[in-house]
Design a protein around this nucleic acid. Structure first.
Lengths: 356, 356
DNA sequence: GTTTCGAATGTTAGCGATAACATAAATTAT
DNA sequence: ATAATTTATGTTATCGCTAACATTCGAAAC
């Protein structure tokens, strides 16, 4: 008895208060007078369906405005054709370009992307990661804003078998692929370019060294200084975040030092940091590059436009995104895809801020 | 008999070749020795569960690394807590800011966003819209790249009851809310600013007039010209797309006219178009603003940095995104939410390109 | 000590689709 | 014409979870 009541209730709901106006396979099947399986076969272009039935079903489906319910499909197949993308700062022009690349690669393969912007907040990063797991994304692309050394979270995800690829900012030796650029080499080269200007006291505005780009770029700077036997003055190395404000603050920290030990030139971990630093330099009434030269990293859209055009390293952002997404998709679709670290090639862009 | 075989197969698959390493409610239930319903109640913080059982279940769930399967939940509830976002050009700095605003609003309410970049390609827009429908997003935010007059597609979606909110580029009288700015007024004002410089021949580089911003901004220009009794020379009005290349092409079209009828000033539908036009003007060996003055719309990140800083209209991009997302969420969560058109207030930013 | 009630827990069916098998219908082969 | 194959179609159970109802159990009420 109760069973029957139950059934009736559901049917009533079906007819009276369905929240979504969506047609189901079953409804199409009933309209045509076949079983759901036959409709399913037609919708998915499977063989063994009579041409006449196929046509009838297709017509009915179209007329009724049938849209396959991908949620149900995902439940059966354990595949969502969805990728989670986590970026630290969408306002930094590098990232929209990366996203464009990701989009390009994923769309071709019929994946959708969940985009989330963490604003460099690791708490949010964790929260989002959990949401993405719950939504059963097929894989995750992430440029981590990690600033603590708690990698356990990522380790868990990777161990759980959920494909994950880092781009730009990766975490090393954690068993995930990472698509970035030749950070260390490029950083060494641009520092050497400053050295070729005969500057001796060269400061460094660093990002968090926990993150691959933070560490690698810093190492490149150190390598350049060491190779050329220049003194590495710890006081001239300021570690802070990756954005403009951080650059501004870091530069002001340098300018708060006694004038005698001021750097003659500064290497910034990226362009936003360089822009922030440039503001600080200008506000201090100093001239770029005559008093203090500066170089960046990224080739932000503004780099060539600022008052003193910024010498920087051009990163293939679009390519990074595209490669990372392709790698992730391969990892998703083929469980033997190897873990690898890819370094794309950058290009030194000499402008004025270095003193050229 | 066959039924039994079937059962065995499924069980084998369960144990041997489960693709996902994900724990299910059922497994947690078995581990603790209760029914799935009880676990469900605990996970969802429902009442009527003994404190001891609750604790035991929570512990087991944590130890086993249980993550709720949101796909299954969505199937039951017909709610995905997912919003589709369609933008025409992620490279245009206006849009990342909008996305940041959208992110802000959606994340607070625990929605995820599917981001798709159509590259101003309506074919892709349609394809994506279908994918989003299939994935049963709870609502859609779109800045349409529509260039034909085939609105039927949107009409269908709106009629189907799927909440949809336009932002920036909307389609009028179609029964959906639109969050934009006071395009017409702002466009009139900036044109009037040029008029205040005593320019008489003022050209207009238009976007597609099918789209709200295309039409409204154009109307603002016309209104300004009319109010001040200036001749509207059809030859000085070029309709093209919204990006830099289009601006470049459009401006060159103007410059191909006989010199006598060249415009003395040009209003561009947005900043990228203005930048493209500026390139064309410079390439023609002309000076901005001395030979040809120009103004834009957007206040792109580059506007203040270009050789001749661009006079433009500052749009509250972040706000547009945030408002649009909030409106959409309200529309999703409350079926009586009214359809409305919101115009946020812009600000004229006077720089040099107008001749000031 | 039985009844009554509410809290704790369990059972069943269903969300919309598909895999795997079963069966009916149409062909082909013999 | 009948058996052997295909081909077309249907049935059932399942994905992981939850609503709705059913049941159990202990404690208060009589």
């Amino acid at each position: 008895m109760s069973t029957i009541t139950n059934k009736i209730n559901y049917q009533q709901m079906d007819k009276e208060s369905r929240r979504t106006g969506n047609i189901t396979l079953k409804e199409v099947a009933e309209a045509v007078g076949v079983s759901t399986m036959t409709v399913s076969r037609v919708i998915n272009n499977r063989p063994n369906v009579d041409e006449k039935t196929r046509k009838k079903i297709l017509e009915a489906a179209k007329k009724m405005g049938y849209t396959p319910n991908h949620v149900a499909k995902s439940l059966v197949s354990s595949r969502t054709y969805t990728i989670g993308v986590i970026i630290p700062e969408i306002s930094h022009s590098f990232f929209p370009e990366v996203v464009r690349g990701i989009e390009e690669a994923t769309n071709n393969k019929n994946y959708q992307i969940f985009l989330t912007n963490t604003s460099d907040n690791f708490g949010k990063e964790q929260k989002v990661l959990n949401a993405l797991r719950s939504k059963r994304v097929d894989g995750i692309l992430v440029s981590s804003s990690l600033t603590t050394d708690d990698f356990s979270f990522y380790k868990l995800i990777i161990k759980s078998g959920l494909p994950l690829v880092f781009f730009d900012r990766g975490i090393e030796d954690i068993g995930a692929s990472c698509i970035g650029v030749n950070d260390k080499t490029a950083s060494r080269q641009i520092t050497e370019h400053l050295i070729s200007h005969k500057y001796k006291r060269i400061g460094y505005l660093s990002g968090p060294k926990r993150v691959s780009i933070g560490k690698e770029r810093f190492n490149g700077y150190i390598e350049a200084m060491t190779r050329h036997n220049l003194e590495i003055d710890e006081r001239l190395i300021i570690e802070n975040g990756f954005n403009e404000k951080c650059g501004y603050a870091a530069m002001n920290e340098l300018l708060a030092l006694p004038k005698e030990i001021w750097p003659r030139a500064v290497v910034a971990v990226n362009d936003p940091v360089a822009f922030g630093a440039m503001d600080a330099i200008r506000e201090a009434g100093l001239s770029i590059p005559n008093d203090i030269a500066i170089v960046g990293f990224t080739d932000d859209i503004r780099a060539k436009l600022v008052a003193c055009p910024l010498t920087t390293v051009q990163q293939p952002a679009y390519e990074v995104g595209k490669k990372a997404a392709s790698k992730l998709i391969r990892t998703i679709e083929n469980k033997d895809e190897p873990v690898e670290t890819v370094e794309l090639i950058t290009k030194l862009v000499i402008r004025k801020s270095c003193g050229c």
